[in-house]
Simulated scan of single mutants.
Amino acid sequence: MIENDTFNRVGTNHQISANAYNLILGAVLLWGFAVNWYLVTTVPAEVMLAIPPIAFYIGYFVLAMAGVALLSGSQEPMYSFLGYNLIVVPIGLLLVVVLPRYSHEHIIQAVQTTILLTAGMMILGTLFPAFFKRIESSLFIALLVSLIVELGQSFFFGTHLAAMDYIVAAIFCGYIGVDWGRANRIERTVDNAIDSAAALYLDIINLFLRILRIMAKK
């Protein structure tokens, strides 16, 4: 989820058709997943693990925050797409480290489940946009509380409750419906399509990682 003024751009100043808008949004989403796949299949995990963790996470957050800043502050498609890639690349490098911990079977199952849930939530977001608009604030509070609980569990007790993965997965399912509904309410421009794709990309990646943990624990 990305919070900026993109989803406040509600109006009738549509610059492209609905078909073109959805095509661009889908293409940008697929580009992000393709970059992730390329990094996972070409960058050895040993290379990333050789980087000191502090340096890796500092670089990760610097690039990701720079990407969010570009997406939030620009209405130029070129800069928004650059910002999108600044988010996609560090997440791809994180996946290089994370995915080898899981079996190929679990990864495939998680991908399939994520695709089905994403498609289902997009359909629901299209059919019931008012409902998802109402629950947007509740989802944000639920996600914030969940992250605080998880951090507390990790730092103070060194544990992780399996139930939290189900809860956070459900929250990101809701966010897919929210962000898809918002994407279809705003003005149809190339920049808005890229910004909407970035928000959905983060929802889907987070959902995938939670489902992968759930599959592995089973």
Rank of each mutant, 00 (worst) to 15 (best):
F131H: 08
S103Y: 05
Y84I: 11
T118H: 09
S80C: 15
V111A: 08
A130R: 15
P53M: 08
T42D: 02
E46F: 06
L147S: 07
Q15T: 10
G26W: 08
L25Y: 08
I16L: 05
H104C: 00
Y21D: 06
A34M: 11
V97Q: 15
E76W: 15
F156E: 02
M1G: 05
Y21H: 10
L95T: 03
P44G: 03
P90R: 12
V97E: 14
Y84G: 07
R188F: 15
F132Q: 12
M121L: 14
W31N: 02
L93A: 04
V145S: 02
L147R: 10
F140W: 09
T113G: 00
H14W: 14
L144I: 03
T113H: 04
T41A: 09
S74E: 12
N13C: 02
F155Y: 09
A110M: 06
L200W: 12
E150W: 07
S80H: 11
N85G: 14
L94M: 13
L143R: 06
T41K: 14
F61R: 03
I211G: 01
I171W: 10
S154C: 00
I176G: 03
T12N: 14
I176Q: 04
I148G: 02
N8V: 00
V97G: 01
I2G: 05
V43L: 00
P44Q: 05
L200H: 10
A183Q: 07
G83E: 14
A34T: 13
G158A: 02
V62W: 11
Q112D: 09
G177S: 07
G73C: 08
L86V: 08
E105L: 05
I205K: 04
T41N: 15
I115C: 08
D179A: 01
L147Y: 10
L202I: 07
T126K: 14
I91N: 13
L86A: 02
D179K: 04
F156H: 02
F155N: 00
I171V: 06
S72C: 04
T114I: 04
L70V: 01
F131Q: 05
P90A: 04
L139C: 04
N85Y: 11
G152K: 07
L124I: 11
L202W: 11
Y166Q: 00
M65T: 10
V98W: 14
F156M: 01
A119I: 15
V190H: 09
I115P: 12
M121F: 15
G181I: 01
P44L: 01
A170M: 07
T159G: 00
L143F: 11
I51L: 12
F56M: 03
I194G: 02
L49A: 07
G67W: 13
V10S: 05
M215F: 13
H104Q: 12
Y84D: 12
F140K: 10
A27D: 04
H160Q: 07
S154F: 09
T42P: 01
I211Q: 06
L144C: 03
R213V: 04
S146M: 06
S196K: 13
I2T: 08
H104S: 09
L71I: 13
V97D: 10
R185Y: 12
A27C: 07
R188P: 12
V40A: 00
A50W: 15
F33G: 01
I171H: 04
I186E: 08
I204E: 11
M215L: 04
E150P: 00
I141R: 10
F56Y: 15
K133R: 13
A199R: 11
A55T: 13
M1V: 03
A64C: 06
I107C: 00
V190A: 03
L39R: 01
A20Y: 06
